[in-house]
Design a protein around this nucleic acid. Sequence first.
DNA 1: ATGAGGGTTCCAGTCACGGGAAGGTCAAGG
DNA 2: CCTTGACCTTCCCGTGACTGGAACCCTCAT
Lengths: 129, 129
Amino acid sequence: MNIGDVATRTGLPAKTIRYYEEIGLIKPPRDENGYRRFRDNDVHKLNFLGRARALGFTIEDCRTLMALYEDETRASADVKKVARAHLAQIEAKIADLNAMRDTLGHLIDACAGDDRPDCPILRDLSRNP
Amino acid sequence: MNIGDVATRTGLPAKTIRYYEEIGLIKPPRDENGYRRFRDNDVHKLNFLGRARALGFTIEDCRTLMALYEDETRASADVKKVARAHLAQIEAKIADLNAMRDTLGHLIDACAGDDRPDCPILRDLSRNP
DNA sequence: ATGAGGGTTCCAGTCACGGGAAGGTCAAGG
DNA sequence: CCTTGACCTTCCCGTGACTGGAACCCTCAT
């Protein structure tokens, strides 16, 4: 299978697939003409990666998770640990964003949004401390 | 005032202040020795920028907001529009993260987290479609 | 032979900085 | 007067995870 077919199948852009090869996440062999030849296993890995990335795991997490996936003797505790650390990051990010949303929401509500220059949003941004 | 004092006052790293000058957000004059000399107005602007960045506005948004702030004839509607667009981005991001958190949370709950290799997290990541 | 539609590499850019090197400036202390 | 140490300066590279584009090769159909 060539890269275009794999891109269609996995939903990943060809550029991304080449990038994943470049950083060593997959190692498809080459045909005589230099084209990458993807085996089922490569496609499987790419699906795995796409799914892990969609859950927000970093590339390095993906590397770790793939290694665990391929290690038949893994302990599920190791997987869970990676996932929990990532969940904590997500929750921290959500908390940050919630705080921003609340502040911004209040400011927007307080702003008349008309032709006049008076604006609580700018007042807040330029407040002293 | 030199950059170190400004950094202390605004809470922004000196590197960031130099960067903001480089991209034209502030234009502090220079002393004879080449040092940046910050006036109250520059410090004020930097506080504004720090606050806007803390609310997650992009640098380009900050540029727009500062321009509006300095335009006495602005319409608050223009400010509100920028803020609302940003709020929408934040909410979209929160929605994404909430979905990740939910999925990841379920998977983590389902994972025994012991010595055995069997792991619902990896099963989900490697599932077919 | 020519064109369309694959594939390949390499380089540059994204965003908002941060790290670190190499060197100029200034105030205080010996 | 000299040195020390804390400042300041510019310049360049690296970050994460790609994306866009140029320039070029391969294959097949017309």
